[in-house]
Design a protein around this nucleic acid. Structure first.
Lengths: 354, 354
DNA sequence: TTGAAAGCGTTACCAG
DNA sequence: CTGGTAACGCTTTCAA
């Protein structure tokens, strides 16, 4: 049955397989595998002359190993899944960039990204990733409590899971990467308090309740320490879009007395806040200060340049990948929790209280 | 050897397979496949009672079909690859969003994204995608001339390719989606000329030569039609980052007489241009007008809100997916070229020439 | 150093 | 309607 006469060029109707390469190179399929993989187990040495012949044949045929077959055989896809909650936020992409770089650097050359907008789609996306037999999963800002079952399945598949930017309470024993937003919020509040601000508004736009609570906690605590009575009307809850931030700011700017500073949950929403201020004829920072979190790419180029808290997002992504790979290699290690430090980036959107 | 006694719960060391489900449900593996796939060929009907038993067993075991095995068997991974040139540009994400939505809607539930920064990495990324046996590949702004070989391989694998936002000259016979930037540039130039602008600068920041040439052509042509002599010093070539746009704008603003308007290749760079203008103490649009392309999410919230050309990016992504799927179903159809129209979005960054 | 052969988990064909 | 069984393309052990 074997179509012996198949030449190098006429198999145009089908992707070439290892067997085709073997035939052209006049060797066995095993030899082809040895030459082209040469992964672990050291070099199962094969004669240089043969090696070259195989390489040439593969090149000539445009042979690409079938990843599905490899995955099936090796029980590993050498890939990492990532779920991103808000694809619209540039900060998310900074993280993805970090993940991508580190994954590629570690030979986990491919990155599967799946976008999610709500808990239901999140489940579905994670399941899809499960089916692909990913070696690890990085979840950002997830409703992890709804994914218990998926975590079980993953662990049975020996896949690693890293949670990124989530609260670490009442959690399964997972590795986590935590951006130092809490500490950053402390720095920012100190900065604002030193500038003399006392009426400080907070635009709190998050996708789900517990996210950003560390920032909220720092905000409340430092106000309290400064002897400022809490004022509910200065905290505006809203969604995650720029428009949400804009509208929240409009509401905040109608408070009397007006806040002299507005802390915004992230830089994206801060863009909306800056716009609202400008629209109301307020000068930033002369009339009101505005500050954000994340230090997204455009933060230095907004008008005015935005004071913010920077957490190196690429490092966050990179650390997540490392935790994944560490766990793949050492499955029984105790859970690790790494924190990526934050620091204040002072620009032109904050100034002395008027 | 077959571990007959394996109960539903103690197989914790390995992902459950179809065989496990079959054993628990007391049916054959084929039956499990029929129940859980039920894809094409119509319903290979199976008794409702049996069906339920299988479903229950699968649920109980947390069974997820192994996608690698399915891909191997079906010769299709039901996935689409996308390469994005500049992950930093929000416009790219808009496109990805469109691709993601449409792909999911069509049952191509997973989206593989691979980021590239240069021609070499692009080749490598595409090869990786090839190995995964993607059903289709969407290339945005690619150096397609360097990928001839990969295209051959793809076509042999019966994978579809769509080029997005590329010049369509001297091209293999590929399907393309072209954003209407050329026409948009015409609209924008008309808008600026009507406002009385004659000295119009152009910040031309692209990753590779031919990209954006349709905008350049429109710019030159309309200036010429308006009787304005070309002025090389008004065109600034630069890279693709906000910083590049900022610096290009600084150079442009030093021209004497100063341009009264600046056309920017995209909104991202326009952010840098707006910042440069503000920094130089220029009021936009009173002293100088600024306009971009893409209508990224933040465009309406910049200070001032940015006049721009909108090409519905999600639609672009969506069309790309449709072209892919059409071709998968009808491989021998002649190449299709769809164009997504552009329209002027007039905001506050353009006004009468001073 | 090279070749033969046994799976990996699925699907789909062909008998019962 | 259900149950064997042969691929799919690859890696890897075991013999030669």
């Amino acid at each position: 049955m074997s179509t012996q006469g198949l030449s190098a060029t006429d198999a145009l109707t089908k992707a070439p397989t290892q067997a085709d390469v073997a035939r052209v190179a006049q060797v066995s399929r095993a030899t082809v595998s040895y030459v082209l993989s040469g992964r672990r187990g050291g070099p199962i040495s094969v004669a240089e002359e043969t090696r070259q012949r195989v390489l040439r044949a593969a090149e000539q045929l445009g042979y690409q190993p079938n990843a599905a077959a490899q995955t099936l055989r090796l029980r590993s896809s050498r890939s990492i899944g990532v779920t991103i909650f808000d694809l619209n936020n540039p900060h998310s992409w900074q993280i993805v960039r970090g993940v991508d770089q580190e994954a590629k650097a570690q030979g986990y050359s491919l990155l599967l990204i799946s976008t999610i907008m709500n808990a239901e789609r999140e489940r579905e996306s994670v399941r899809e990733l499960l089916r692909r037999r990913i070696d690890g999963l990085i979840l950002t800002q997830t409703h992890h409590n709804q994914l218990k079952k998926e975590f079980q399945i993953l662990s049975r598949q020996h896949s690693a899971v890293v949670l990124l930017g989530n609260q670490t309470e009442d959690l399964p024993d997972l590795d986590t990467v935590t951006p130092g937003h809490g500490d950053g919020a402390v720095q920012m509040m100190q900065h604002l308090l030193e500038l003399g601000h006392r009426r400080i508004g907070f635009v709190f736009g998050v996708a789900a309740k517990p996210l950003g609570s560390e920032r909220m906690a720092a905000y409340c605590r430092l106000l309290h320490n400064a002897g400022v009575a809490p004022d509910e009307s200065l905290v505006e809850y809203c969604g995650v879009t720029i428009a949400d931030g804009y509208e929240a700011a409009l509401r905040l700017l109608q408070c009397r007395p007006r806040p002299t500073a507005i802390l915004v949950i992230n830089d994206l929403l801060a863009i909306g806040v800056l716009h609202a201020a400008a629209e109301q004829g307020l000068r930033v920072p002369a009339d009101i200060s505005v500050a954000g979190f994340d230090d997204i790419d455009m933060a230095p180029y907004l008008n005015p340049a935005l004071t913010t808290i920077r957490v190196n997002a690429e490092e966050v992504g990179c650390m997540a990948v490392r935790l994944i790979l560490d766990r793949v290699r050492t499955p029984d290690r105790p859970p690790q929790h790494v924190c990526v430090p934050a620091r204040l980036i002072q620009r032109d959107s904050t100034g002395p209280a008027p």
